[in-house]
Nucleic acid binder design. Structure first.
Lengths: 197, 197
DNA sequence: CGCGATCTGTCACTTGGTGACATGATAGTC
DNA sequence: GACTATCATGTCACCAAGTGACAGATCGCG
């Protein structure tokens, strides 16, 4: 066995906990649900819950790849000649499609966007995520970006992402997210080399 | 009397509380400082502290205009022919200069950027702020922006702001923030009208 | 001066989160 | 199949952030 049985069960418990938690949150709200509620619904103690997740917020982010493991890898795998902005466009389009394919992930996204506390946590996670994406951009062969420009690119990309989410929320979830993302990436441009001021 | 004495003293107490709090936070850290520490240092009870600020985080944002009162007003006051992106550029440049003029405000900014919990709160505040800025952009005479494009503009502007902060932190506070902001606004472009995809 | 609104302290309580300890289950070894 | 070290869990005690309720002090204002 490549991975021990212990790790597998641990992962299963985490997933179960996440599922139960998102379910309770969407039904009765984030603040109205106590950690003990979640724990008992999953058949354990409050103390045990915190052995799987450091905070009440973190349980929500279990299913979604926000640490950017896959995103960073995808960036490195893009063709060398491609400009950094187009690279981000393609990678994030793929990421968004992947996330929205799962009904579970979709519900999670909805929950996060509707709960200020979770939106804050998402931002915190994205801060680390952005640093890694920024580094990944700079590590691409053939490109020579200074740190500031790399940050501009990465931050602008999340700016588009946020605008898409807002518009999507405005349309009560009926908007075409991929199309919005394309439009956003076409309306925003980032010079890959610094300009004179 | 335009404003009652009561409101004035209340404001003074708030300011005093904010000052004491930022001082303690910078000296011994945010998490290591309890609300009771702040309250006692200001000569009151923990309970009374919460009658002035809803949370421990909020006390930090007292001095800084993040609700965008002045920013929104400044946007409305810009010349009518000016493009929305240039408008944001000028207004935020002015805002940044104003904030960084005060030593107290500068210390606060530094504290926020160094404390994840406060950075999260800043983001939450900015979410409301962005909506108001977005609306202000659309209300400008002579411009006809759809909500999505207005969001793109606003989010892109905060993207620049964040990149400036990161670069500034990287340089240990020695970087020239106004110059960085100009450079950022020159490197990033936002089409004020949707493009075909 | 006196009335009513506001501010304050005190007490009790809920909830998120942590440390310490004991106990029970289990994986791998002989 | 028994043994042991490891890991998960429950229990208990604790701290800190908030919140509601009540009582008394204070103070603006007519």
């Amino acid at each position: 066995m490549k991975e021990g049985l212990r790790e597998r069960t641990r992962r299963a418990v985490r997933a179960e906990l996440a599922k139960v938690a998102v379910d309770l949150f969407t039904r009765q709200g984030f603040d109205e649900t106590t950690v003990e509620d979640i724990a008992r619904a999953a058949g354990m103690t409050k103390r045990s819950f915190f052995r799987y997740f450091p905070t009440k917020e973190d349980v929500v982010f279990d299913g979604i790849d926000l640490t950017g493991e896959s995103v960073v890898a995808d960036i490195a795998a893009r063709p060398a000649g491609e400009g950094p902005w187009e690279c981000l466009h393609q990678v994030l389009q793929a990421w968004q499609e992947e996330v929205h394919a799962s009904e579970q992930a979709l519900a999670t996204i909805r929950l996060i966007e509707a709960t200020p506390a979770l939106a804050g946590r998402l931002h915190q996670r994205r801060t680390e995520w952005r640093r890694r994406v920024s580094d990944a951009l700079r590590d691409r062969p053939g490109t020579d970006l200074d740190p500031y420009t790399a940050d501009l690119l990465t931050n602008a990309a999340t700016a588009v992402l946020d605008a898409v989410s807002s518009q999507w929320a405005r349309s009560d979830g009926n908007a075409d997210r991929p199309a919005l993302l394309d439009q956003g990436f076409n309306q925003v441009h980032v010079d890959p080399s610094p300009r004179q001021v």
